[in-house]
Write a protein that binds this DNA or RNA. Sequence first.
DNA 1: ATTGCTGCAAAACCTTTGCAAATGT
DNA 2: ACATTTGCAAAGGTTTTGCAGCAAT
Lengths: 172, 172
Amino acid sequence: MMKNESRTPPESSSQTCAHCSDSTLDTVRRIENAFFDLSRPNTAPRRMLVEKLAELAKTGEAFSPDDLWQRLRAVYGKIGRATVYRSIEQLVENKVLDRVELCDGSHRYRVCGGSHHHHLVCTSCHRVEDFQDCLSEQKFEEIGRRHDFSVEDHRLTVYGTCRRCRRTADRR
Amino acid sequence: MMKNESRTPPESSSQTCAHCSDSTLDTVRRIENAFFDLSRPNTAPRRMLVEKLAELAKTGEAFSPDDLWQRLRAVYGKIGRATVYRSIEQLVENKVLDRVELCDGSHRYRVCGGSHHHHLVCTSCHRVEDFQDCLSEQKFEEIGRRHDFSVEDHRLTVYGTCRRCRRTADRR
DNA sequence: ATTGCTGCAAAACCTTTGCAAATGT
DNA sequence: ACATTTGCAAAGGTTTTGCAGCAAT
């Protein structure tokens, strides 16, 4: 796939808007940039995706590819499932989306902020929250040195039950 | 599925053997116990699985369900794919196997030692090694408290390139 | 005009399930 | 005899792919 070499910052299609927080505008911007970095065309499906993902970013919801496809077609009508899969893949590569592993091994996706973070996942409702805690950079280097690996990345996921699900469970 | 209530330690089918290390015998024992805990029958497929998994444990190799199926049928002939899937599932539940997530989101399985550990995964050849480092128990509790989650489990995976793959890459 | 995204449908993939037969206790 | 596992084949669900047509630049 050809990368976009002669890049110009894309115009955000979103107007500055009293109803949108700055962080939503940032998210919109980040997604648009990610698409633009891949290639220029600002197509209808991409606009739908930007809008819907900005919404999902606001609530922090995690979704499956099919979830996203269903939501998009419910609101905007015709869009191919393959387009959704292809876009998700691209956005994961461009670090706009995180792939989150549930404890049963299945995956959800989630719009992520830019900074280093990990996931706290509810084993019951699959709610996902971010946290920052982690081992130190030096610790990872030490682990790599010990095993003669050059460390590139790491993932830390904590599984538990969120407050709401605990309450639901107690009620029984 | 009915658990085995009136349990008697199963007889290990392995003789004490000059060629097998104690740790291999332990592994055999652990797998046999896991199967026995599920139900009594000591069937041919289970024996094949015990033997092959003990072998895989020795080399620390990670495998997909299909890998394991192919290896088993190559050596022992007829065995159903479904049996392999069902056994893997049971052994994961009984903590004899770990499910390891590769960086592309696919999974491999691996015979694991009993104690707390995490995985270092080579992004190129998918070799998996164990390490012990982790955040403290208190840290996890603190994360839970902060988000009002009751923490049940966690997974830490480090991705990198192993020595052999680095050398292969350098040679080009 | 060119590039490359999109939608569709088919294919590929992986995993689970139902059931009759085989097996272990 | 009984309970359980097994193998097979079919079904199920998800993801990928090929390609003609279309949209954006």
